[in-house]
């Protein structure tokens, strides 16, 4: 449904003439809806921008909301949704911010029946724009989840100092290349920070080692060596060992140990520490 240009223009005039009071009421309504979680000042700034971008679009019923005329308002809405998502608002609350303008416009025009048809079209426009915030919301949620996953990846990369001069990093689960890379970089950084000369990379928890993971491992070992540190790879289980051999990967002179404990014993011996069993009792 599209009203003719004349009517659209009249509604635009009415909206423009009443801009201040409309924005004011709109802000109050939404501020009430959000129960103080957004200040009126913030809302007013956002809504004023939004209102200005909206005026030239009056007359559209919102079915062309993906089109070039809507570029500006789309990016405003996207920005608005983005800040809402991050502030923890629900998608309904965000979309309601847009829908709330309807009520104010209905009230403003209720005594002028000649505008009703146009207001109906306008209402369709706001519906489309409100729905856009839902889409942005979903998109921004995904962005946030991805960011958090990346952060988690770094957090769950435990490089631990298990002895003076000895670091250990247990690798677990499915190693994709992003994760292996993060782990290896973290390990090299930690070597520098702690001035350690030994690093144990324990792969007991790893389900498969392919050539890419092996390449990351090899590069790390070489880089560590250049920094004067020695890496020990421990926990290569039988099925992994057989697979590595069949793949044709050569670990060369890299020290490998069956278990983390063996690797630690080796590192300590190199550090000049002897672990001896003493009689108890």
């Amino acid at each position: 449904m599209t009203a003719d240009a004349g009517d659209a223009q009249r509604l635009t005039e009415v909206l423009r003439a009443n801009a201040e009071s409309l924005i004011d009421k709109w802000v109050s309504a939404v501020a009430g809806l959000l129960r103080g979680r957004s200040t009126k000042t913030e809302l007013e700034r956002d809504f004023r921008e939004f209102f200005t971008a909206l005026l030239p679009l009056v007359g559209s019923d919102g079915r062309d909301v993906g089109g070039p005329r809507f570029t500006e308002i789309r990016s405003l809405l996207e920005e608005y949704s983005r800040s809402r998502v991050r502030a923890g608002f629900t998608p309904t609350e965000t979309a309601s911010s847009v829908f709330s303008l309807k009520r104010e416009v209905f009230e403003l025009t209720q005594d002028d029946p000649s505008l009703h048809r146009e207001v109906l079209v306008f209402s369709g426009l706001l519906d489309s724009l409100g729905l856009l915030t839902f889409e942005s919301y979903a998109r921004v949620r995904e962005e946030i989840i991805r960011e958090q996953a990346e952060q988690l990846l770094e957090l769950t990369t435990p490089v631990v100092k298990i002895w003076e001069g000895v670091l250990a990093v247990p690798l677990v689960g499915t190693l994709d290349s992003a994760r292996t890379q993060v782990v290896m970089e973290k390990l090299l950084e930690s070597l520098v920070e702690t001035g350690s000369e030994h690093a144990i990379i324990d792969i007991t928890g790893v389900s498969a080692v392919d050539t890419q993971v092996a390449q990351h491992l090899l590069k790390t070992v070489v880089a560590a060596r250049l920094m004067g540190a020695e890496c020990i790879v421990s926990g290569i289980r039988p099925q992994i060992a057989q697979t590595i051999v069949a793949l044709g990967i050569e670990f060369g002179d890299i020290v490998t140990k069956a278990s983390l404990a063996d690797a630690l014993r080796h590192a300590l011996r190199r550090e000049g520490v002897d672990v001896v069993r003493r009689e108890v009792g």
């Binding site: 392919d210 099925q239 057989q242 697979t243 793949l247």
Partner: peptide, 17 residues
């Protein structure tokens, strides 16, 4: 077998990449 599983999974990893 566990060894064969690991071999096949690793081959798949190579080819998929």
């Amino acid at each position: 077998s566990l060894v064969d599983q690991t071999k096949l999974v690793t081959a798949a990893s190579e080819l998929a990449r």
